[in-house]
Simulated scan of single mutants.
Amino acid sequence: RLSKLVTRLACNGELLRDMGKRFIDRFDKVQTSAFSDHPVSMKYRGIFERTKREEIDGPEGKYRLHYVGARIDETPQQAFEWWYGKHFKR
């Protein structure tokens, strides 16, 4: 469950702006790769878009998955509230 919060924060607009200031560049998206035995990684679903899937059938998994996430303009507090409401509202 915590991985959903981490992936959402990776696309957070405020955090990407801070990174942009430090690296003198503008970040509008985040790219990542994952290895899995499944054709889709559930931790990225709904936040990142899968751009490529390669069958590798190696020791790290059957697939290498490539994802891109667009910047989400929200505060880190809003991201936490979204995550908490999604996973702990019962």
Rank of each mutant, 00 (worst) to 15 (best):
R1C: 05
R1P: 03
R1M: 10
R1V: 06
R1E: 15
R1K: 09
L2I: 00
S3H: 04
K4V: 03
K4A: 05
K4H: 12
L5T: 06
L5E: 04
L5S: 14
T7E: 14
R8E: 02
L9T: 01
L9D: 01
L9M: 03
A10Q: 09
C11Q: 00
G13K: 00
G13N: 00
E14V: 12
E14M: 01
L15E: 02
L16G: 13
L16S: 06
R17P: 00
R17I: 04
D18G: 10
D18E: 14
D18M: 10
M19D: 08
M19L: 15
G20E: 01
G20M: 00
G20T: 00
R22P: 04
R22A: 15
R22W: 11
R22Y: 11
F23Q: 12
F23N: 11
F23Y: 13
I24C: 15
I24N: 15
D25M: 10
D25E: 11
R26N: 05
R26Y: 04
F27A: 02
F27V: 05
D28H: 00
K29E: 11
V30H: 03
V30M: 04
V30I: 13
Q31F: 09
T32N: 15
T32I: 09
T32V: 12
T32R: 12
S33H: 12
S33T: 13
A34F: 01
F35V: 07
F35S: 09
F35C: 09
S36E: 07
S36H: 11
D37F: 10
D37K: 07
P39S: 02
P39R: 04
S41M: 12
S41A: 15
M42T: 04
K43T: 04
K43V: 05
Y44N: 13
R45V: 09
I47C: 04
F48S: 01
F48T: 01
F48A: 01
R50N: 13
R53F: 06
R53N: 04
E54A: 03
E55K: 12
E55M: 05
E55P: 02
E55R: 04
I56Y: 02
I56Q: 02
I56K: 02
P59L: 10
P59Y: 05
E60A: 11
G61M: 09
G61C: 10
G61A: 08
G61V: 04
K62D: 03
Y63S: 09
R64C: 09
R64W: 08
R64T: 03
L65E: 10
H66T: 09
H66K: 14
H66G: 06
H66P: 11
Y67A: 13
V68F: 12
V68S: 15
V68W: 11
V68K: 14
R71S: 10
R71V: 12
I72W: 06
I72C: 06
I72L: 14
D73V: 08
D73P: 06
T75L: 14
P76W: 12
Q78D: 03
A79D: 10
F80C: 13
F80V: 13
F80Q: 07
F80I: 09
F80N: 10
E81L: 14
E81A: 15
W82L: 06
W82S: 02
W83E: 06
W83I: 08
W83L: 11
W83D: 12
Y84G: 05
G85Q: 02
G85I: 01
K86D: 12
K86P: 03
H87Y: 14
H87D: 07
F88W: 06
F88T: 10
K89N: 15
K89R: 10
K89Y: 07
R90H: 08
